[in-house]
Design a protein around this nucleic acid. Structure first.
Lengths: 246, 246
DNA sequence: GTCAATAGTTTGTCCTGACATTAGGATGTT
DNA sequence: AACATCCTAATGTCAGGACAAACTATTGAC
């Protein structure tokens, strides 16, 4: 008996069965119970052991294959991919990233206004003429060291924003609590040289390297919710991601 | 009758039915037959119209939702997402990107060797001590203007590489033709300042901004195939991607 | 007129069953 | 011993049905 897969299925739980399987296998891989390169039992047996149907088992494995943790080969079997896997780039904010890493980010709100959107912002957020947006600039620090300078525009017909809450938590957390279900975001990552405005705020010198990121986020109803221009100190931040071939 | 969805299913074709549906709906969206924001008929009716079962229809729509073209809401229906969608970041090479955009890239091979891998490369590619790799540096130009400086290490037990073919086509094209099926890649994007070695090659000045990218690619058997450090002129290149929430 | 209960529509989840396709080993033949 | 053929095991595809959950709109009561 190769693997035991220490996982139980709770049929009274509101979380779908296939998702319980996903979580269980993910945990088994992370704890090392399933070693990289090891082969899983076949779908039918695994399903039988957990008292699940094969489609349910398959749906779980589908997700794991898509996320790059498993590799399937017809006629052969399913293997755990050879470790070294980083978590894929997710639709999260910098604040989430840092919180999950144990650091304690702080935020200074440098400016905050509720103003009429200009042409470029109206285009980016697909707003009609005369629409108003929240416009603010924040400085994100970790351990007292400045890391990111962020300028954002958010449409005002979803949830109210104020300076105090922006200083206390991340923008995405506020929007999610306001009922926004993010669906996708398009972003562009590049580089630039720190100018005289950015350098002192980031406690670096003009001419040092910055990573730039422009992002526009869309919710599940197709509305453009937020757009922003962010710059990061290149010596403290980079974007890490896993690309999965389909 | 809202939409007609001009598509036919060929049951004698070797391409899976659900994939035929995916392609059909993608085409309908691209040709404008399905407008952004429009609602599709419900899954059951669509399946019936095409003489398919609901699971098959659903699997097709699952893929379209995952790729960000459709949005589903329980109790409501399925909508075409509000355009403005960029193609997601794919596991392609810079050469592919530029070729697809109509530009004509050229490549200068600055150095090429077949050497024993040092410790860092052995770690990155998970190779045993004493293993040899191809190690080369290339300068990619578009329209005569230099754009990227790329240093790569490739394991040598998959396919043979030589200087001439690297000058004629992209690395990923060569590897794919050599039988490599890429499965995933992890990469990190950051920024740096051009140094005295990079600046003249990229025809810029020391101190200008560069985008950096480090990537390691894995094939479908879990082998680390290739790793590389690339730098791009920040005024000519940026990474654009679409993130899809799961 | 306003609010709450209800019915209907649509997607979400899960089941059982069947056959096709592929990879790889076992078998048998030359 | 080398080769071609068959068989088995595993994933890939597809069908049809059933019930659950969520959202909308209507209906009804106050």
């Amino acid at each position: 008996m190769a693997n035991q897969l220490n996982l139980r299925i709770d049929r009274s739980s509101p979380v779908p069965l296939y998702h319980q399987v996903v979580q269980g296998i993910e945990a088994a891989i992370h704890t090392g119970l399933l070693e990289p390169g090891s082969r899983l039992e076949n779908e039918i047996d695994l399903a039988a052991q957990l008292n699940l149907s094969r489609p349910t088992m398959r749906k779980a494995m589908d997700e794991l294959v898509r996320s790059g943790l498993l590799v399937r080969k017809r006629g052969v079997g399913t293997q755990v991919v050879s470790s070294q896997v980083r978590r894929p780039l997710e639709l999260s904010s910098l604040y989430d990233d840092l919180s999950n890493n144990g650091s304690k980010p702080t935020t200074d709100v440098l400016s905050f206004s509720h103003e009429e959107a200009d042409g470029a912002i109206r285009t980016a957020l697909q707003l009609p003429a005369g629409a108003k947006v929240y416009h603010f600039t924040r400085l994100r620090k970790v351990g007292g060291k400045p890391l990111a300078l962020m300028e954002n525009w958010v449409r005002d017909d979803i949830t109210a924003l104020d300076e105090a809450s922006l200083g206390a938590q991340g923008l995405y957390a506020i929007l999610r609590n306001g009922g926004v279900n993010f669906r996708l975001a398009s972003q562009r990552i590049g580089a630039m040289i720190a100018n005289d405005y950015q350098a002192p705020l980031l406690e670096t010198t003009p001419g040092s390297a910055l990573v730039t990121m422009e992002r526009t986020a869309v919710d599940d109803t197709g509305r453009m919710v937020e757009t922003g221009h962010h710059v990061y100190r290149a010596d403290s931040y980079s974007f890490e991601m896993t690309l999965v071939q389909r």
